[in-house]
Lab assay of single mutants.
Amino acid sequence: MQRVNMIMAESPGLITICLLGYLLSAECTVFLDHENANKILNRPKRYNSGKLEEFVQGNLERECMEEKCSFEEAREVFENTERTTEFWKQYVDGDQCESNPCLNGGSCKDDINSYECWCPFGFEGKNCELDVTCNIKNGRCEQFCKNSADNKVVCSCTEGYRLAENQKSCEPAVPFPCGRVSVSQTSKLTRAETVFPDVDYVNSTEAETILDNITQSTQSFNDFTRVVGGEDAKPGQFPWQVVLNGKVDAFCGGSIVNEKWIVTAAHCVETGVKITVVAGEHNIEETEHTEQKRNVIRIIPHHNYNAAINKYNHDIALLELDEPLVLNSYVTPICIADKEYTNIFLKFGSGYVSGWGRVFHKGRSALVLQYLRVPLVDRATCLRSTKFTIYNNMFCAGFHEGGRDSCQGDSGGPHVTEVEGTSFLTGIISWGEECAMKGKYGIYTKVSRYVNWIKEKTKLT
């Protein structure tokens, strides 16, 4: 034993070699072989497995989906700052455009905790909710729209109204504003409101030439003092309507412009014939205590009207009353817009006519005020429907199939267009061939041609 100890002390290297040989010859039971080890760690190889990531292109799944990435790591994937920024906006807080917040056709661009709407022409605001041009839906104005110097929408209202708090709607500024039905039992019968379409306001006024200088022999019209197929109006439903009495009662109609003036057809009036105007009328054979009678003290036909040349060209006249009318729910003026808007309103496509005229061709006159909704007829169809001249200051309205029309005794009465609950004068009943005849239409004086003249002559002093 002493000898062994001496050998170990003198030859430590020998001992180490012996131990190493023993270990190498022993069977290893701690580690699995290569094949079995792979069965336990069965993990798919990654895209760049075996390579240094710093030297390969980034992978979106590896960089940002398996674990949260930084902007720089995302930049490695896209290799483009702009594309990385677009991805980053949604990656950080989701897609803010998912709810489609942009209105009126706006395009949404996502941002971090926010979004941006790219608005089409005519709109602005956070969600493109603000109209900035009158060309689109009248700028959301209830009545009139004008573009300011910086191309912003400025709404306005006709006389007797003021802008509401929203700067879009119009509200009454006087007790009985024009064009409004205020009798409670008839307010439910107000005709369907007309909503502004998209309009090209630059070209809204037709490029028409008034044929002022045409000389033409007097034409022989049949029954051209021209509501057939209409309905009984309720008291106060058309408070701007008046009836004219002269040699015979209810020979023509008219509309209240203001307390002192009536507008009617020029062919209705004769110099030297006494005319009485009755406002607030409903049943011409009954006294309903809503009527107001006034005498006409002055007749002003349009300066281009000449019955000797043509009885229905420039067929418009103004009547001055001896005493002002007292405005109330049964006696209310009709609204008159400017030339541009009167023309736009007419193009809405349908209007209402009213009167006490004959209820059928050569038949009896109506006792109760009649009204009828009539569609506008395109000019080409209008011209083809008659052998008589249709001037540019006239328009056609009615039904091709016949059966409904204005008729004798309705002449001078109103053709009105309702705009968001307020009625505007767009025409004056003038003439036609018979009444409600198939293929024939009622012919009306186009008020847009005469609004400046009306307003100039009827100013209240």
Results as ranks from 00 to 15, higher is better:
Gln2Asp: 05
Arg3Ile: 11
Val4Trp: 08
Val4Phe: 15
Asn5Glu: 07
Met6Leu: 11
Met8Ala: 14
Met8Phe: 14
Met8Ile: 11
Met8Cys: 14
Ser11Tyr: 07
Gly13Pro: 08
Leu14Val: 12
Ile15Thr: 04
Thr16Arg: 09
Cys18Tyr: 04
Cys18Gln: 04
Leu19Asn: 02
Gly21Glu: 04
Tyr22Phe: 15
Tyr22Leu: 06
Ser25Gly: 09
Ser25Cys: 15
Ser25Met: 14
Ser25Lys: 05
Ala26Thr: 12
Glu27Phe: 02
Cys28Pro: 04
Val30Asp: 15
Phe31Gln: 15
Phe31Pro: 06
Phe31Ile: 15
Leu32Thr: 10
Leu32Arg: 10
Asp33Val: 10
Glu35Thr: 13
Ala37Ser: 13
Ala37Met: 04
Ile40Asn: 15
Leu41Met: 10
Asn42Trp: 07
Arg43Ser: 14
Pro44Glu: 15
Pro44Trp: 09
Arg46Trp: 08
Tyr47Asn: 15
Ser49Lys: 07
Gly50Pro: 11
Gly50Tyr: 08
Lys51Met: 05
Glu54Pro: 09
Val56Cys: 06
Gly58Ala: 11
Gly58Glu: 04
Gly58Val: 13
Asn59Asp: 14
Met65Val: 11
Glu66Trp: 04
Phe71Asp: 15
Glu72Phe: 06
Glu72Ala: 15
Glu73Cys: 03
Arg75Val: 10
Val77Ser: 13
Glu79His: 15
Arg83Tyr: 09
Thr85Phe: 06
Thr85Glu: 10
Trp88Arg: 15
Val92Glu: 15
Asp93Ile: 12
Asp93Gln: 15
Gly94Ile: 07
Asp95Ile: 09
Asp95Val: 09
Gln96Leu: 12
Glu98Ile: 13
Ser99Gly: 12
Leu103Met: 11
Leu103Phe: 07
Asn104Gln: 06
Gly106Met: 02
Gly106Ser: 04
Gly106Cys: 03
Gly106Phe: 02
Lys109Gly: 04
Lys109Val: 11
Lys109Leu: 09
Asp111Trp: 09
Asp111Met: 08
Ile112Ser: 15
Ile112Val: 12
Asn113Glu: 14
Asn113Gly: 07
Asn113Tyr: 07
Glu116Ser: 13
Cys117Gly: 02
Cys117Arg: 02
Trp118Lys: 15
Pro120Thr: 07
Pro120Met: 06
Gly122Val: 02
Glu124Cys: 04
Lys126Met: 07
Cys128His: 02
Cys128Tyr: 01
Asp131Phe: 12
Thr133Asp: 10
Cys134Ile: 02
Cys134Asp: 03
Lys137Cys: 04
Lys137Arg: 13
Asn138Lys: 12
Arg140Ile: 13
Phe144Tyr: 08
Phe144Ile: 04
Cys145His: 01
Lys146Glu: 12
Asn147Phe: 09
Ser148Leu: 14
Asn151His: 09
Asn151Ser: 09
Cys155Phe: 00
Cys155His: 00
Cys155Ala: 00
Ser156Leu: 09
Ser156Gln: 11
Ser156Ile: 04
Cys157Glu: 00
Asn166Thr: 03
Asn166Tyr: 02
Gln167Pro: 03
Gln167Cys: 05
Lys168Pro: 02
Lys168Thr: 06
Ser169Ile: 05
Ala173Gln: 14
Val174Glu: 09
Val174Asp: 07
Phe176Trp: 05
Phe176Leu: 07
Phe176Ile: 09
Pro177Ile: 01
Pro177Ala: 08
Cys178Lys: 02
Arg180Ile: 04
Arg180Thr: 04
Val181Lys: 07
Ser187Arg: 09
Ser187Asn: 06
Lys188Ile: 12
Lys188Pro: 14
Thr190Lys: 10
Arg191Cys: 05
Ala192Lys: 09
Glu193Cys: 05
Pro197Trp: 07
Pro197Glu: 07
Val199Met: 11
Tyr201Asp: 10
Ala207Leu: 06
Glu208Tyr: 14
Thr209Lys: 08
Ile210Cys: 10
Ile210Lys: 06
Ile210Pro: 10
Thr215Met: 04
Ser217Tyr: 10
Ser217Glu: 11
Gln219Tyr: 06
Gln219Pro: 11
Asn222Cys: 05
Asn222Thr: 07
Asp223Tyr: 06
Asp223Ser: 13
Thr225Cys: 05
Arg226Met: 10
Val227His: 06
Val227Lys: 10
Val228Asn: 05
Gly230Asp: 05
Glu231Asn: 12
Glu231Lys: 09
Asp232Ala: 10
Ala233Ser: 08
Ala233Phe: 06
Lys234Val: 14
Gly236Pro: 04
Gln237Pro: 06
Val243Thr: 09
Leu244Cys: 02
Asn245Ala: 04
Val248Arg: 13
Val248Leu: 09
Val248Ser: 04
Asp249Asn: 03
Phe251Met: 09
Cys252Val: 01
Gly254Thr: 00
Ser255Val: 11
Asn258Ser: 05
Asn258Tyr: 01
Lys260Gln: 04
Trp261Pro: 00
Ile262Pro: 01
His267Ile: 02
His267Asp: 03
Val269Gly: 03
Thr271Pro: 04
Thr276Ala: 07
Thr276Leu: 04
Thr276Trp: 07
Val277Leu: 03
Val278Lys: 05
Gly280Ala: 03
Asn283Phe: 09
Thr287Gly: 09
Thr287Gln: 10
Thr287Tyr: 10
Thr287Asp: 13
Glu288Ala: 07
Ile297Asn: 03
Ile297Phe: 03
Ile299Lys: 03
Ile299Pro: 03
Ile300Tyr: 05
Ile300Ala: 03
Ile300Asp: 02
Pro301Gly: 04
His302Gln: 03
His302Asp: 02
Asn304Val: 03
Asn306Ile: 05
Ala307His: 09
Ala307Cys: 04
Ala307Phe: 09
Ile309Arg: 10
Ile309Ala: 13
Asn310Lys: 06
Asn310Glu: 07
His314Ser: 04
Leu318Gln: 01
Leu318Ala: 03
Glu320His: 02
Asp322His: 03
Glu323Cys: 04
Leu327Ile: 12
Asn328Thr: 10
Asn328His: 02
Ser329Ala: 11
Val331His: 00
Val331Trp: 00
Thr332Leu: 09
Cys335Trp: 00
Asp338Ile: 03
Tyr341Cys: 03
Leu346Trp: 12
Phe348Gly: 14
Phe348Leu: 13
Gly349Thr: 04
Gly351Thr: 02
Val353Gly: 02
Ser354Pro: 05
Gly355Asp: 03
Trp356Lys: 11
Gly357Tyr: 15
Gly357Thr: 12
Gly357Ile: 10
Gly357Glu: 14
Arg358Ser: 14
Val359Tyr: 08
His361Cys: 05
His361Glu: 07
Ser365Met: 14
Ser365Val: 13
Leu367Asn: 12
Leu369Ala: 14
Leu369Gln: 07
Gln370Asn: 07
Leu372Lys: 13
Val374Lys: 03
Pro375Phe: 06
Asp378Tyr: 03
Arg379Ser: 13
Ala380Asp: 13
Cys382Arg: 03
Leu383Val: 06
Ser385Met: 11
Thr386Lys: 09
Lys387Met: 11
Phe388Thr: 14
Phe388Leu: 13
Ile390Glu: 05
Met394Lys: 04
Met394His: 14
Ala397Glu: 01
Ala397Tyr: 02
Ala397Leu: 01
Phe399His: 13
His400Glu: 15
Glu401Trp: 14
Arg404Asn: 06
Ser406Trp: 13
Cys407Tyr: 05
Asp410Lys: 11
Ser411Gln: 14
Ser411Ile: 09
Gly413Ala: 14
Gly413Cys: 10
His415Asp: 01
Glu418Lys: 09
Val419Met: 10
Glu420Cys: 06
Glu420Leu: 11
Gly421Arg: 13
Thr422Cys: 06
Gly427Lys: 00
Ile428Tyr: 05
Ser430Asn: 10
Ser430Cys: 05
Ser430Ile: 14
Ser430Gln: 07
Trp431Ile: 13
Trp431Phe: 14
Cys435Pro: 03
Tyr441Leu: 12
Ile443Leu: 13
Thr445Asp: 01
Thr445Gln: 05
Val451Cys: 08
Trp453Val: 00
Trp453Leu: 00
Ile454Gly: 00
Lys455Tyr: 05
Glu456Thr: 11
Lys457Gln: 05
Lys457Cys: 09
Lys459Asn: 13
Lys459Trp: 05
Leu460Met: 12
Thr461Gly: 07
